[in-house]
Computed example of a mutant assay.
Amino acid sequence: MRVSNNLVGLLNFITFLLSVPILGGGIWLAHRATTDCEKYLERPVIALGVFLMLISLAGLIGACCRVNWLLWLYLLVMFILIVILFCFTIFAFVVTNKGAGQVLSGKGYKDYKLGDYSNWLQKRVNNNKNWNRIRSCLIDGKVCESLSKENSTTQSQFFAKHLSPIQAISVLESCVQLLFDLWSGCCKPPDSCGFQYQGPITWSKPQTPAATASQDCNAWSNDPNTLCYNCDSCKAGVLQNLKSDWKKVAVLNIIFLVFLIIVYSIGCCAFRNNRWDNANNRWKPYA
């Protein structure tokens, strides 16, 4: 066996082993999912598990058993995957280039406006079907309800208590910041509304609306299942999270692309070996 065939076989055997728990996790979600958010994940997870399992089997059998058409199919899928990942990486950087929170004076959080983000992302969250699914995930995740269990008595104490971990714990800084992106947009009314703080998720409307009041001010409700989940500021907070996540995914995609290109090159060597061996066997004289 050639070295390239052995390497392709080994890598695909490892991929096949990884596909088993992924597929199992998708099947488990399909039978145990109770929320819309969990049900939304089951099909992509199952599809990913089946895809990895089939493509790894094609590469494994094609490289180790010298089945040339399977190895050719494996290389074709790998090439398409490389092109798709490359295009997605460029797209992710372009789409997430716009949008940033506005720093508020004397506050430990930022204000997010939907109009600051790319038109493509705005269209995604303004779609009622998409947003209803996202809102369901936010409610099921109880992102805001956990704040109501706190015992802070004043607005300043509440802000100080919750925002200090961002500066105190560098390892969790990004995770905490993402949480407060959602909190700032979905769990409290916009600062421009001039609402009075009564509790972590309880605010009273002013008798005289602020001059800078927006439609988000009327969308706010102290109901834990409503809050500001219908606000543009909440959609902007979700997009800020999405922007941060996509940038990280894009960086990981670059690393993964390099890995895929290396595997694809090794696979091409294995394919050439198969053709060479098949040609020799075809012209080999009978004893």
Rank of each mutant, 00 (worst) to 15 (best):
S4V: 11
N5W: 05
N5L: 08
N5A: 15
G9L: 02
L11W: 10
I22M: 15
L23I: 04
W28V: 05
A30I: 05
R32T: 09
A33T: 06
T35G: 08
K39L: 15
E42I: 03
I46R: 09
S56Q: 05
S56M: 06
L57C: 12
L60N: 07
I61V: 12
V67I: 14
L70Y: 11
Y74M: 05
V77L: 15
V77W: 08
F79V: 07
L81W: 08
L81D: 04
I84G: 06
C87E: 09
C87M: 15
T89D: 09
I90M: 00
A92V: 06
V94I: 12
V94N: 02
V94L: 09
A100F: 05
A100P: 00
A100L: 03
V103N: 07
G106S: 02
K110S: 10
D111T: 04
Y112Q: 00
L121D: 08
V125N: 06
N126A: 10
N128T: 13
K129N: 07
W131G: 05
I134E: 03
R135Y: 01
C137Y: 09
K142G: 06
V143M: 09
E145R: 13
S146D: 10
K149C: 04
E150H: 11
N151D: 05
N151V: 00
F159Y: 15
A160V: 00
L163H: 02
Q167P: 00
A168M: 09
F180Y: 14
L182H: 07
W183V: 11
C187S: 06
S192K: 14
C193R: 01
G199H: 12
I201Q: 09
W203C: 12
S204Q: 13
Q207W: 08
T212N: 11
C217R: 12
S221K: 11
N222K: 04
Y229L: 14
N230R: 02
N230E: 05
C231V: 02
D232F: 07
S233W: 09
C234D: 02
K235S: 08
K248N: 08
L252Q: 03
N253R: 00
I255M: 12
I266Y: 11
C269F: 15
C269R: 10
N274K: 12
R275H: 07
W276N: 13
D277V: 11
N281R: 15
K284R: 13
